[in-house]
């Protein structure tokens, strides 16, 4: 394994990763929390809680660009599924740019960069999603809208099952009270994971991740001096996230099989193919 880096090296790594996160990830936790708690000058998010409010949101109140050129023309569950896909695809783009800024990532084989993103992006997305969530709903459309958890639960099966596990995870994850600087390192550690299937140079990936984890550990001690065991607690969340992704992949497979009306974005098709 790699030799221990010095405290100042780890500090500068933390800073670089944090800057990359703020530069590439559009919706930060800070921004989201300000909106959710009303600490912002802009108007509060438009609440989407039923068919009617969703329809209003689609007519320019929340989203300025409609999918497939029209407001909900399909069944509502299918429509929400498409909205989830759009957001996911956009976040995959952002995460790709973020990953490229993590020291060492672009020096990896291109093959391994592809593998790390294929397996890492959904875990990263589900780790960032709690920033936009509270127990009652989640921010959408760059904070212009707020979709209630109850509305998502009211969709017919299987669409009602998409977001509920993410809310359950989010409520527990948010109790750790991480900020964007913690999340930046945590998400980087998720991406640079040495046990993804098919990696060519496992050691090279592990070395980068080891540094990131050391930086995260040090950063948490400084940033959360009173939170005991926050680092090991966070490491445990890695296993929960993997479970969440596995279940999500199974649900997407189920939707693909049973809902002939739905289609999957080509980027997501790539990611899910032969995943687990």
């Amino acid at each position: 394994s790699s030799p221990n880096s010095s405290g100042s090296d780890l500090k500068s790594l933390a800073k670089r990763v944090n800057n990359a996160y703020l530069k590439n990830l559009n919706m930060t936790k800070k921004k989201a929390r300000n909106i959710l708690t009303g600490k912002t000058n802009s108007s509060p998010p438009f609440v989407i809680h039923d068919m009617d409010s969703l329809w209003q949101a689609e007519n320019g109140l929340v989203w300025n660009q409609v999918i497939n050129g029209a407001p909900p023309n399909k069944e509502i569950g299918v429509h929400v599924f498409y909205r989830c896909q759009c957001t996911t695809v956009e976040t995959v783009r952002e995460l790709t740019e973020f990953s490229k800024s993590i020291p060492g990532f672009v020096d990896l084989f291109l093959n391994d960069q592809v593998t790390l993103l294929k397996y890492g992006v959904h875990e990263a997305i589900f780790a960032m999603l709690p920033s936009l969530m509270n127990k009652d709903g989640l921010l959408v459309a760059n904070g212009r809208g707020f979709v209630t958890r109850e509305f998502l639960r009211s969709l017919r099966k299987p669409f009602s099952e998409i977001m509920e596990p993410k809310f359950e995870f989010a409520v527990k994850f948010n109790a750790l009270e991480l900020d964007d600087s913690d999340l930046a390192l945590f998400v980087a550690a998720i991406i640079l994971c040495g046990d993804r299937p098919g990696l060519m140079n496992v050691h090279q990936v592990e070395e980068i991740q080891d540094n990131i984890l050391q930086a995260l550990n040090q950063h948490l001690q400084l940033n959360h001096p009173d939170a005991s065991f926050i680092f090991p607690k966070l490491l445990q969340k890695l296993a929960d996230l993997r479970q969440l992704v596995t279940e999500n992949a199974q649900l997407v497979q189920k939707i693909k099989k049973t809902e002939s009306e739905t289609s999957l974005h080509p980027l997501l098709q790539e990611i899910y193919r032969d995943m687990y």
Binding site: T96, L110, N111, V114, L117, K118, G198, L267, R273
Partner: peptide, 20 residues
Amino acid sequence: SHTLQEKHKILHKLLQNGNT
């Protein structure tokens, strides 16, 4: 290796060309 990149054309493109 080559086939992995072939199977992940969009990811590959995002990695190489950046956010366009």
